[in-house]
């Protein structure tokens, strides 16, 4: 965990850049791997904190006393309890990934312009600025931002509502 903290001390975009130089990416798969590799740290940290918090509860101890082994406790007791925060982080990291891809493509490090994506469309906006053709910039931006917002709203629904929370007796 300490080494994760050290990696976390570097801004995420820099980690993506550093890994990007090593992979030399320009396909969809490479970019996906790149963004995935650079964004799992926060999920790992949150899962660790949540799991630690739950493992201190009384019923875990009770289950342990009744002879439940590690795997049983992990799957039956801890996993259902941390599912909701995991899903929340997972879905918000979808929007993070979309934003990162768009940023990378805009900076000229992501997908090439002939691969269609919102990011590569927005990558054209620097040229569009010079030609003063604002629709090229405005419409993809509106779609991207509303998509990001929508994904986030779905994620926070999973995070706050009790759909996935196990019932307390």
């Amino acid at each position: 965990m300490r080494s994760l903290e050290v990696i976390n001390s570097i801004p995420a975009i820099l980690v993506v850049l550093l890994l990007g130089t090593l992979i030399r990416s320009d396909g969809i798969l490479e970019i996906s791997i790149l963004v995935g590799m650079s964004s799992w740290f926060s999920l790992a940290r949150i899962v660790r904190v949540e799991a630690k918090q739950i493992s201190k509860q009384g019923y875990i101890e009770a289950s342990y006393a009744m002879g439940g082994n590690f795997l049983h406790i992990l799957i039956k007791h801890i996993l259902p309890n941390i599912l909701s925060p995991i899903l929340f982080v997972l879905i918000s990291s979808i929007s993070f990934a979309m934003g990162t891809e768009a940023t990378l493509s805009f900076l000229g490090l992501g997908l090439p312009p002939d691969e269609l994506s919102l990011g590569s469309l927005l990558g054209l906006s620097k040229r569009a600025l010079l030609q003063n053709s604002w629709p090229v910039i405005i419409f993809p931006s509106i779609i991207l931002v509303s998509l990001l917002l929508a994904v986030t709203i779905v994620g926070s629904t999973f995070g706050t509502q009790k759909i996935l929370k196990p019932r307390m007796l």
């Binding site: 940023t103 927005l122 620097k126 910039i137 991207l144 931002v145 990001l148």
Partner: peptide, 22 residues
Amino acid sequence: GTIFFYTPAFILSVILILIFAI
């Protein structure tokens, strides 16, 4: 605030350049 938070920085920069500089 929420809308601005989820707008990627580069989009906002480009739009501000479009409005204020161009």
